[in-house]
Amino acid sequence: MSIQHFRVALIPFFAAFCLPVFAHPETLVKVKDAEDQLGARVGYIELDLNSGKILESFRPEERFPMMSTFKVLLCGAVLSRVDAGQEQLGRRIHYSQNDLVEYSPVTEKHLTDGMTVRELCSAAITMSDNTAANLLLTTIGGPKELTAFLHNMGDHVTRLDRWEPELNEAIPNDERDTTMPAAMATTLRKLLTGELLTLASRQQLIDWMEADKVAGPLLRSALPAGWFIADKSGAGERGSRGIIAALGPDGKPSRIVVIYTTGSQATMDERNRQIAEIGASLIKHW
């Protein structure tokens, strides 16, 4: 067993022997301040990774656009098919120029040779490549099948209805392509620590998230040296922004954090800054 596999296998073990965790309302004060600064709703939840206990939450059962955070769930569904012998990570998928959609920095470079399922998941999570996500959605049967996968996990809230990039439209009061912070946090925890996926697939999923290259201005910008984070960000229309993450000190994750916002007129930089400040408060009061 590799060191990384050992780390993920012992996530519940280490967490069980940690000192009790206590909620700190100071972080919620910052979440509410972010709402004021952005002029928009902000949803927040913080779960203990081992027990699933909610440590703090704000608007945990209000719907927010998922945006690209759905790509972690998508690759979880792909990995479940791999575990069941219905898919192979090494299978190569070929596609054409007509398949390319807006923001496809990886797939646009491989029109000639195609990409493997493993490479597509890596591109979808680490670079948020939209064509990679659409190609992977095709392998599982489309958005409705991802929703069905989530329902089978016990998540009857999260739903995907459309493809990239239309799913980022974020129309107010439109339930399409949305989740709730509580539902997303619980589902992410199941994917990373539950028995739904094999140990190898859980490790692969967290490795992809740990290698995320496009979430630097968010929670990662607030992390002290030595902290662990595996995350996936999302951005959408109407001032929408979000991030889902597993993080913790001492090089291992111990909490799940989900943050979503929508309806702001603020710039992307300002949305990023507010999420980073929430992260800084979380870490300060850990």
Rank of each mutant, 00 (worst) to 15 (best):
M1V: 05
S2Q: 13
I3E: 06
Q4H: 14
H5E: 09
F6T: 07
R7D: 07
R7C: 08
R7A: 10
R7L: 08
V8C: 13
A9S: 15
A9Y: 15
L10A: 14
I11K: 05
P12N: 11
P12F: 12
F13T: 12
F13M: 15
F14K: 02
F14G: 07
A15N: 06
A15G: 15
F17V: 15
C18Y: 06
C18R: 01
P20Q: 15
V21R: 05
V21T: 10
V21I: 08
A23N: 06
H24T: 15
P25K: 10
P25Y: 08
P25G: 08
P25L: 10
E26D: 09
E26L: 15
T27V: 14
T27Y: 02
T27I: 08
V31A: 08
V31T: 06
K32M: 15
D33L: 12
A34I: 10
E35S: 05
E35V: 04
D36E: 13
L38N: 06
G39E: 15
G39S: 14
A40N: 08
A40H: 04
R41P: 10
R41W: 07
V42C: 08
G43E: 00
G43Y: 00
Y44S: 01
Y44D: 01
I45D: 02
E46F: 08
D48G: 06
D48A: 08
L49K: 04
L49T: 08
N50C: 08
S51G: 09
G52W: 05
G52M: 06
G52D: 08
G52T: 05
K53R: 14
K53A: 14
I54K: 07
I54V: 15
L55M: 15
E56M: 08
S57V: 10
S57N: 09
F58T: 09
F58C: 05
F58A: 09
R59M: 04
E61K: 13
R63I: 09
P65K: 04
P65E: 02
M66T: 06
M67L: 09
S68Y: 00
F70M: 14
F70A: 10
V72F: 03
L74I: 07
L74V: 11
C75D: 02
C75T: 12
G76H: 02
G76F: 05
G76A: 13
V78E: 03
L79A: 03
L79W: 01
S80R: 11
S80D: 10
S80W: 12
R81Y: 08
V82A: 10
D83C: 04
D83L: 02
A84M: 10
G85P: 01
G85C: 08
E87R: 02
E87V: 09
E87H: 04
L89Y: 07
G90C: 09
R91C: 04
R92G: 06
R92C: 07
H94C: 09
Y95K: 01
S96T: 12
Q97M: 15
Q97T: 13
D99N: 10
L100D: 02
L100V: 10
V101P: 02
E102R: 10
E102P: 14
Y103G: 06
S104I: 02
P105F: 05
V106A: 10
V106Y: 08
V106D: 07
T107I: 05
E108V: 13
E108W: 08
H110Q: 09
H110L: 08
H110W: 08
L111W: 09
L111F: 09
L111M: 13
T112R: 14
G114Q: 04
T116G: 04
V117G: 02
V117T: 07
R118E: 15
R118D: 12
E119N: 08
E119C: 04
E119Q: 14
E119F: 02
L120K: 00
L120N: 02
L120Q: 02
L120S: 03
C121E: 01
C121W: 00
S122G: 13
S122I: 14
A124T: 12
I125L: 12
T126A: 10
T126Y: 04
T126N: 06
M127C: 09
M127D: 07
S128H: 00
S128T: 01
D129R: 00
D129M: 00
D129W: 00
N130Y: 05
N130K: 00
N130Q: 04
T131F: 05
A132R: 00
A133T: 12
N134E: 02
L135N: 03
L136V: 08
L137Q: 05
T138E: 15
T138C: 13
T138P: 06
T139C: 09
I140H: 04
I140C: 06
G141M: 06
G141T: 05
G141V: 04
G142D: 05
P143K: 03
P143T: 07
K144H: 10
K144A: 14
E145I: 10
E145C: 13
L146D: 00
L146M: 13
L146K: 00
T147Q: 09
T147D: 09
T147I: 08
A148T: 14
F149S: 07
H151Q: 13
M153K: 08
G154C: 06
G154M: 06
D155L: 01
T158M: 03
T158E: 00
R159D: 06
L160M: 12
D161C: 06
D161E: 08
W163T: 10
W163A: 10
E164G: 00
E164F: 00
P165E: 06
P165C: 09
P165I: 08
E166Y: 15
E166Q: 14
N168M: 06
E169R: 11
E169N: 12
A170V: 12
I171N: 15
P172N: 09
P172R: 11
N173A: 14
N173F: 13
N173D: 14
N173M: 15
D174L: 04
R176E: 07
R176M: 10
D177T: 01
D177K: 01
T178W: 01
T179V: 02
T179W: 00
T179M: 01
M180E: 15
P181N: 01
A182C: 13
A182S: 12
A183M: 10
A183D: 07
M184Y: 08
L188K: 00
R189H: 13
R189D: 08
R189K: 14
K190S: 13
L192R: 01
G194W: 08
G194Q: 10
E195A: 06
L196R: 15
L196E: 13
L196Q: 15
L197T: 05
T198Y: 07
T198F: 07
L199K: 11
R202F: 03
R202D: 03
Q203P: 02
Q204C: 13
Q204S: 10
L205S: 01
L205I: 09
L205A: 03
I206P: 01
D207M: 11
D207L: 12
D207W: 12
D207K: 12
M209F: 03
M209W: 03
E210I: 14
A211H: 14
K213G: 08
K213S: 10
K213C: 12
V214H: 06
V214Q: 07
A215H: 04
G216E: 07
L218K: 02
L219G: 03
R220K: 06
S221P: 09
S221N: 11
A222E: 13
L223A: 10
L223S: 06
L223P: 02
P224W: 03
P224K: 07
A225C: 13
A225T: 15
G226V: 04
G226L: 05
W227A: 02
W227K: 00
W227Y: 07
F228D: 03
F228N: 06
F228P: 01
I229A: 05
A230M: 07
A230V: 06
A230P: 00
D231V: 04
K232W: 00
K232D: 00
S233E: 01
G234F: 01
A235N: 05
A235E: 03
G236V: 02
E237W: 10
E237I: 10
E237V: 10
R238H: 14
R238S: 11
S240V: 02
S240L: 02
I243D: 02
I244C: 09
I244G: 02
A245W: 01
A245L: 03
A246I: 13
A246D: 03
L247R: 00
L247A: 05
L247V: 11
L247P: 00
G248M: 01
P249N: 08
P249S: 08
D250K: 14
K252F: 10
K252R: 13
S254I: 10
I256H: 00
I256D: 00
V257L: 09
V258T: 07
Y260D: 00
T261N: 03
G263I: 04
G263K: 06
G263M: 06
S264Y: 04
Q265S: 15
Q265A: 15
A266S: 13
A266L: 15
D269P: 10
E270I: 13
R271I: 10
R271S: 08
R271P: 05
N272C: 04
N272P: 01
R273S: 10
R273E: 14
Q274G: 09
I275F: 14
I275R: 00
A276P: 01
A276E: 08
G279I: 04
A280H: 14
S281H: 12
S281L: 12
L282C: 11
H285L: 09
H285P: 02
W286I: 04
